[in-house]
Design a protein around this nucleic acid. Structure first.
Lengths: 212, 212
DNA sequence: AACTTAATATGACAATTGTCATATTCAATT
DNA sequence: AATTGAATATGACAATTGTCATATTAAGTT
């Protein structure tokens, strides 16, 4: 299958090229260094797959993709980036990209290309867990520890996230209401949040311990 | 890589087996015909990938997956079905499945398996186009309508669930702060909730726990 | 024109919430 | 015994929130 690689870092695109051409049935038709160039090269070469970085100079990969898909709705565009950014995922999906990989996993690039070529959509491991409204099954307060959240604080967070008021939480944990308020105050500070509602939302976005 | 196939239709699983074993690096360790059997076989064989139908006799593929992932969080489970149903997508993602394919595409099964094996998540063509809508706020409207929630109210709910204050919501929707308060008051009444935090929780619960 | 309805707004009010500075208690450490 | 440091508490305060009763306005409808 024919592939075009787009990345503003020439080192990246050339090593990608090496990796990809190590597979018999992959050919790299060209490499581009910008979104504008990507559009041109796509027109000229009509590759099976366009493998493109998202963050680039002036025209982002997303914009380039949008433009290409406008004239070639069947184009298979696969994004490749270092970060798993929620905004990007959603936008990439909306635009109609065939997937979104992380650069780190170079050994999984070839299988991903094949899957896309055969009509599938492919997403890097970390992606699925980040989809809004979708939470991974493995619960962990490790995430919270990363923010310096203590066990007791975590307990309070999970009660807030069940919808309890301060008074109710106090009753539940045999603390005074004021103490609970203090805890929450500290928690919000640590997580740079403003109020208990944002806290609950944060909890739901980071955890899946949810049984109500 | 080692694979176990689960489908209550023996014809399907045997033809899948044939397809998969046509690839040199795939071995089918076993085939199961029910969710219960799938759990047992997984325990016994620890395959690299479990390829499983969603709709089956009494224990659905989703339930079986949930159970397996409880004890084997790293299990790679790939669903395979005839329908692209929103509910299923959400549920499968939430559980932690590695993907979701459509039975129609025989030729793309092997590439998909390879991609999953190498750590990617794979979704059939039709899936991705649905994902954005599934993730977007629109998808839940229906659920909320069941509670008599109007469009305008839903808009406010989703802003509350993003962590905005009344003032911010007012700014966003060009309403007065008081009006927003009134709206929320009505919403809480309709959903029998007490405050905005419970509302956000309710919202998130309906996103992720969307019906079994 | 008169009537009705939906959407929006206001003001008053109490309750809850979050912040902060300052205790108190108790256990561990020196 | 004295000191330290956590966990917990208190009170004062402002801001936010939720409730409610009551306008106002614009858009239909009769």
């Amino acid at each position: 299958m024919d592939i075009i690689i787009v990345d503003d870092d020439a080192l990246v695109s050339s090593s990608l090229k090496t990796i990809i051409e190590s597979s018999d049935d992959c050919r790299v038709l060209a490499t581009a260094g910008s979104g504008e160039e990507a559009v041109e090269l796509y027109e000229a070469n009509q590759p099976d797959i366009l493998l493109m970085d998202i963050r680039m100079g002036q025209m982002s990969g997303l914009e380039a993709a949008e433009q290409i898909l406008k004239t070639h709705p069947k184009a298979k565009i696969l994004f490749l980036t270092t970060f798993a950014d929620d905004e990007y995922i959603i936008r990439a999906l909306k635009i109609g990209a065939k997937g979104y990989l992380l650069k780190q996993h170079y050994h999984s690039i070839i299988p991903a290309l094949n899957a896309v070529y055969s009509g599938q959509n492919v997403f890097g491991e970390e992606i699925t867990t980040k989809l809004p409204s979708v939470m991974s099954t493995n619960s962990n307060k490790k995430d919270f520890r990363d923010f310096g959240i203590l066990d007791k604080e975590f307990e309070i967070i999970s009660l807030v996230s069940k919808g309890l008021s301060n008074k109710e939480i106090a009753g539940e944990l045999f603390l005074s209401e004021g103490t609970v308020r203090n805890y929450i105050s500290v928690i919000l500070e640590k997580l740079s949040l403003r109020d208990r509602t944002q806290l609950a939302i944060f909890y739901f976005n980071h955890l899946s311990d949810n049984k109500f």
